[in-house]
Amino acid sequence: MEPGFRLPHGGRKRLIGRWNALLQSLGMDPAAHFSLLDDLLIRHTEPQRFYHNLAHLDTLLGLLPAKPHLEFAVWFHDAVYDPTRADNEAQSAGLAQESLERLGAEPALIQKVTQIILATQNHRSEDPDTALFLDADLAILGAEPKTYRAYAQAIRQEYAWVPEALFRERRAQVLQTFLSRERIYQTEAFARLEPTARENLQQELEALAQPTAEAHSASASQ
């Protein structure tokens, strides 16, 4: 996936194929539930999504083993994504529960999926599969620098409504939270990304601390 976070050629078809195979593996008829897939595809192409979109789903599905609870968690964990709200995870978990009940999924599966989604609120879990999912979700932090910078820019675009000074302050708080952890990644599968992730986060933190062009302009006019 190239910086810009767009689906590669054939990506949409691949996603639909993965969804259909997932339902078939559980004895469900994909054709009978096309409206649910259509809703998820529409949600992940909303205009406010510059990073949390279909390309993100495609990446996660490529990073994780093909287990039903992990795959459903991929599809639903950002299904509700409104950057102006603070309850996206809870709303996404609720949508997942409602949707999986309509599919006729087993209660134990639904519980696993909703627990994974709710864990994305703080990206910590003692459950191995949930920890694996959370690490995959944070894999972008350990991307090569050019891709990481594109990710940081995409997040800024998703929060374009936030004034620059306030965004920098809040974004820095998020980055500091991750840097203050003993380990960003909880599983061996993603441990190799730890050094690069820390370097990327530190570089962004330093960039956020630099005076903005607006600040320079205001200072010069005084």
Rank of each mutant, 00 (worst) to 15 (best):
G4W: 08
R6I: 08
L7G: 02
G10N: 07
G10K: 07
R12N: 10
G17C: 05
R18I: 08
N20V: 11
A21T: 11
S25C: 11
M28L: 09
D29K: 12
A32T: 11
S35C: 11
L40N: 03
R49E: 08
F50K: 12
Y51G: 00
L54W: 14
A66T: 10
K67T: 06
H69A: 07
V74P: 00
H77P: 00
A79H: 01
A79V: 08
V80D: 15
P83Q: 11
R85P: 15
R85E: 15
D87F: 13
N88F: 10
A90E: 15
L95T: 05
E98V: 06
S99K: 06
E101L: 10
E101R: 10
R102V: 02
L103I: 13
E106R: 04
P107H: 03
A108L: 08
V113R: 00
T114W: 00
I116V: 10
I116K: 01
L118A: 08
L118H: 05
N122D: 15
E126W: 11
L134Y: 00
D135H: 00
D137F: 00
A143G: 10
E144K: 15
P145D: 05
T147G: 13
A150Y: 09
Y151I: 07
A152D: 04
E158P: 08
A160M: 13
E182D: 13
E182M: 13
Q186W: 09
A189P: 07
A189E: 14
F190S: 05
F190T: 05
L193E: 03
T196Q: 09
T196C: 06
R198M: 01
L201Q: 00
Q202K: 09
E206L: 11
A207T: 06
L208Q: 07
A209D: 00
E214T: 13
H216E: 14
S221W: 10
